[in-house]
């Protein structure tokens, strides 16, 4: 979907008028995503997931710290395959967000900012994440 620039942008609300009639394509479904773009969007998705997942983690933490009975209750929860799956998925989100975040910080220092460097960074991020997911899975099950 091609959208004419001036009408389409929030930044033009108000008095400022940008006399730029170049078309801009922001229809993400029509864009081919290179690997660094996929790692970037996964970083965002994992971030949003963690934001809501924190409620689960706080609940489990509170229960486990409240009393010996609560601690045993949490251990009991962890025998449930569904709980294991949810915790594993959350852990995967956290691990991915951490690894992609470290890559982000490295790039903030100007390392790997070329097209080739970004691709290498994305490959390393995915490779490390897959290993971390596997280790987390073995640990939980």
């Amino acid at each position: 979907m091609l959208v004419p620039y001036p009408e389409a942008h929030d930044s033009n609300i108000g008095k400022r008028i940008v006399k730029d009639t170049r078309p801009v394509n922001l229809d993400l479904t029509s864009v081919k995503f290179p690997l660094p773009a996929i790692t970037s969007i996964l970083h965002r998705i994992s971030g949003v997931a963690i934001f809501f997942g924190v409620a689960v983690l706080l609940y489990l933490l509170q229960l486990s710290l409240a009393s010996e009975a609560g601690f045993e209750q949490v251990q009991e929860y962890f025998t449930n395959p569904l709980v294991k799956l949810v915790v594993w998925l959350l852990l995967c989100g956290l691990l991915y967000h951490l690894i992609a975040g470290v890559k982000h910080l490295i790039m903030d220092f100007g390392i790997g900012e070329t097209k080739a460097g970004a691709k290498t960074g994305a490959i390393v991020t995915i490779a490390l994440s897959v290993v971390a997911f596997a280790v987390a899975g073995v640990w939980i099950w």
């Binding site: 959208v3 389409a8 942008h9 929030d10 922001l26 965002r44 971030g47 949003v48 934001f51 924190v54």
Partner: peptide
């Protein structure tokens, strides 16, 4: 740190995807 980090992250996501477009 979580509260600040989540605020900034969720704001970024919201202002990127919940637009007039």
């Amino acid at each position: 740190a979580l509260c600040a980090h989540a605020w900034i992250g969720m704001w970024t996501v919201g202002t990127d995807y919940l637009t007039s477009l």
